[in-house]
């Protein structure tokens, strides 16, 4: 467990980790353990039948598919938005910066109602999209993607933003001096530095999207096998007072999300370590910015 590498000069490891673990256990692990224990009241065969019914399988496909799409959209555009907000000056920059948090503060039901009004074939946007291109958004799985993109937008922007703010100008300048084009600098220097945060943002957006309910049900149409998300099936079970059935679906979602998140986190870890060791190989002096350290410690 304990590694005795030389860098353990920093204090507070036991305290911080201990506190984090206790808090995590109380608030997250014990309740989730309880959920799994509840579902264990069923035999494995019963669990399997419930978890793999036709409706359930269709709902997993819809839930995870639309979540993946929404998180990907946000990864691409979120990176651009974060970059633009940090690096460029333009009128209304601060306003747009603040706007990014809107999806969190707006209750999801309001978001769902508003988006449906916008994207229905009579709405501000829907009438053009459907009228011009015959493409239906509201009450189809595309509506789910729109709602999830909205709800999870802050994640990528807000995880990437502080990292971009933190990039030292020297790194880019050095790259430029060494003759790199702007694109090369971005691709070889900036992106690897931002990548771990980008992955984190993607993972967060993705996992939040999987569980989202309030905004989706208004725009989805909720037709079984077509646009029915797993959280809606959970509600359907609860509406029949079928608590066990609801916990089965909740546990399935939990396990799939856990595996996906763990893979993303491992990938992220690997990316971060690679980036760090590469940076160290390239120039042992450039990381950590000694001037900064002395200034702060003095």
């Amino acid at each position: 467990m304990k590694s005795n590498r030389p860098h353990r000069v920093l204090p507070g490891f036991n305290l911080s980790l201990g506190y984090a673990l206790v808090y995590l256990s109380l608030l997250v692990l014990i309740p989730l353990g309880g959920l799994i224990a509840k579902s264990a009241e069923l035999s494995l065969a019963e669990f399997w039948t419930l978890a793999t019914s036709q409706r359930s399988m269709a709902s997993y496909r819809i839930t995870f598919g639309t979540s993946l799409l929404a998180a990907s959209i946000n990864a691409v555009f979120g990176l651009i938005v974060a970059w633009v907000l940090v690096r460029y000056e333009f009128p209304g920059r601060r306003f747009f910066d603040a706007l990014v948090d809107l999806p969190f503060a707006l209750p999801t039901a309001v978001a769902g109602i508003t988006l449906t009004t916008l994207y229905a074939n009579t709405g501000w946007l829907g009438q053009y999209i459907e009228g011009q291109w015959g493409f239906k958004i509201a009450f189809t799985p595309w509506g789910i993607v729109v709602a999830l993109t909205f709800v999870t937008m802050p994640f990528v922007v807000r995880t990437v933003q502080p990292v971009i703010e933190d990039i030292e100008a020297e790194v880019e300048e050095a790259a430029a001096t060494l003759g790199a084009t702007r694109w090369q600098t971005f691709w070889r220097v900036l992106l690897p530095g931002v990548f771990p945060a980008l992955l984190t943002g993607f993972a967060l957006a993705f996992s939040r999207a999987i569980g989202e309910f309030g905004s989706v049900i208004f725009i989805a149409g909720n037709i079984p096998l077509v646009s029915e998300i797993t959280p809606l099936l959970i509600i359907a079970k609860l509406e029949q007072y079928d608590l066990i059935g609801a916990t089965v679906l909740a546990v399935v979602m939990l396990v799939i999300s856990f595996v996906l998140l763990l893979s993303i986190n491992l990938l992220q870890w690997w990316a971060a370590n690679r980036h760090r060791s590469e940076a160290r190989e390239l120039d042992p002096g450039s990381t950590g910015n000694p001037a900064n350290t002395q200034g702060a410690a003095a």
């Binding site: 074939n121 009450f139 909720n222 037709i223």
Partner: peptide, 21 residues
């Protein structure tokens, strides 16, 4: 003939009246 299921009675009304579905 049901293109969608509204999540609640109230939303069915909004969908019909305001959104013209």
């Amino acid at each position: 003939n049901t293109p969608l299921f509204a999540p609640g009675g109230r939303d069915a009304t909004t969908t019909f009246i305001q959104r013209g579905q």
